[in-house]
Amino acid sequence: MEKDFEKKYHDVETDHWWFKSRRKYLLDLLKNAPKDSKILDIGCSSGVFLKDLEKLGFALENLYGIDISDKAIANCKANGIPNAFVMDAQNITLTESFDIIVASDCLEHLQDDKQALKNWKSLLKVGGTMYVFVPAFMSLWSYHDEVNMHYRRYTNAELRAKISNENLEILKSSYWNFFLFLPVYLFRKVSAVFQKNKTGESDISIGNAFVNKILLQLIVFENKLLKMVNFPFGVSTFCIAKRKA
């Protein structure tokens, strides 16, 4: 991730509708997990999600985060997260085993995603659960992906296959951010034509506070629907998988 973009990311990650709505979905899924669960957040950034888990009642000493960024881990430490480490997500060298592993928008940053998933599985306890979110569809590729230093975007079938190949049992998979797929697709295609995104800007500006609030509520509503349905397309895709052995 480019340094200027990383600073903007840290500035908005707490309140931006995209990050906040995804955290809300994950927190809702994890709220009934045993509060002594050992949890690893891969690509933890400033530790906002880990702090939310602490507020839910999970024991701080069991919450771990890794990130490739020195600045991100410094922010974690400043936010009171002791178990935060600078590490390459393709080769996490922690000696602990985890009940829950979360990787939100991380796998696409890694050149060898197969090695990363193998490594992550090795850190997951038998019976443990992994939650993996990634950007969807190469047709949505834009300057946003370039400034984020992505290697790829995934279809849901591709993500399912890569996770299943590690002998992980898929519990649920879907696309996410379904309602905004068409607007995002059109915006990125028009921006590519006019090269408006070649100015160093990305898609993460928090923008108007009212619009941010409306988009947050829209995706929170979508999160509720995800309890009953799986969406056929979206800006992101995810899998929830269990280690069988």
Rank of each mutant, 00 (worst) to 15 (best):
T95H: 14
F181I: 10
C76I: 02
L56W: 07
L180R: 15
A116T: 02
N208M: 08
V184C: 10
K55P: 10
K224C: 12
A209R: 15
I39M: 05
M228V: 15
N177W: 12
L124F: 06
V193K: 15
A209T: 15
I219L: 08
V193T: 13
A245I: 09
R243H: 06
W120A: 02
E54M: 09
H150E: 00
T199R: 03
L53C: 04
D52S: 10
K213P: 13
S142N: 06
F98Y: 04
P183C: 02
L171G: 07
Y154Q: 00
N167V: 08
A245H: 14
R243I: 03
L30W: 04
S236V: 06
P183Y: 04
D99Q: 08
L171A: 12
T237A: 03
K35D: 02
Y175K: 13
T237W: 02
S191A: 15
L94E: 01
E2A: 10
L94R: 04
G128V: 01
L186P: 12
A84K: 04
N75M: 06
T237I: 04
L50M: 11
N32T: 14
S37H: 08
F98D: 00
W176H: 14
I100A: 02
I204M: 11
S202A: 09
H16D: 12
M228R: 15
N62Q: 07
P82S: 13
A74Q: 11
N165S: 14
F49M: 15
I219N: 09
P232Q: 05
I68F: 01
F187V: 11
D11V: 14
E6C: 04
E2C: 08
S69K: 03
D36K: 00
H150I: 08
D15I: 10
R22I: 05
F210P: 09
T237G: 01
A241M: 05
